[in-house]
């Protein structure tokens, strides 16, 4: 059981990475990764929102939707829960910790339309995870996202001063870098 959970953790962080293998969360990935500080802020915010949203949606699905035979309402429920949690988190940050709000509050509304969050909620259900697996997956996936986002922002800061062909400047060369990162990470497949 512990071995299974550790495998799931390593898989969700490195081997089945949300950005590089599952192609999720690319819009903020391209947008927020120009500076290391904003990447770090976004990463922490995403971890927090996904953990909260994953647990709440899992609970809601199994305790409310399944007993009432309302499984078809999963999509609408999840997106509303995610959006509400983002609002709640922003309010909480505004009131309790201005310093935290300053560093990552601006990215919170962006997370509502982040594919990773909705994907984690949906996969928790469709893969039929029990609570332990759900917790590991819900914590591992955003950690993988944050890790790759941070590494990517470090590379992109260097790219700004590199000599890139005119038509590749900006996003295209960043995407090629992402592809090379995907190739590098796929080499880690031998870990398990």
């Amino acid at each position: 059981m512990i071995g299974e959970l550790i495998t799931l953790l390593i898989t969700s962080v490195l081997l089945n990475n949300a950005v590089l293998n599952q192609f999720l969360g690319l819009c903020p990935f391209m947008g927020v990764s120009r500076k290391k500080s904003s990447a770090l802020g976004m990463g922490v915010a995403v971890v927090f929102v996904i953990v909260a949203a994953g647990i709440v949606t899992y609970g809601l699905y199994h305790l409310v939707l399944v007993p009432l035979n309302l499984e078809f309402m999963d999509l609408v429920t999840f997106i509303l829960v995610i959006a509400s949690l983002v609002q709640l988190t922003e309010m909480f940050l505004k009131k309790s910790s201005p310093a935290l709000y300053k560093s990552l509050g601006v990215y919170l509304p962006l997370i509502t339309t982040n594919c990773v969050v909705l994907n984690v909620c949906l996969v928790n259900i469709s893969n039929g995870y029990d609570i332990a697996h759900m917790l590991v997956y819900t914590i591992g996936t955003p950690l993988g996202f944050a890790l790759v986002l941070y590494i990517f922002s470090c590379i992109r800061e260097r790219l700004e001063v590199a000599d890139v062909p005119q038509c590749f400047k900006g996003n295209p060369i960043a995407l090629i870098v992402a592809g090379l990162m995907a190739m590098a990470f796929s080499g880690l497949a031998g870990i398990i």
Binding site: C27, R34, K35, K94, A174
Partner: peptide, 19 residues
């Protein structure tokens, strides 16, 4: 809820997508 002081003019450092 008002933003804490010093936070009124925050702008995300976000110019990647032209969304």
């Amino acid at each position: 809820t008002p933003k804490p002081e010093g936070c009124e003019n925050l702008k995300a450092d976000c110019e990647g997508c032209k969304d």
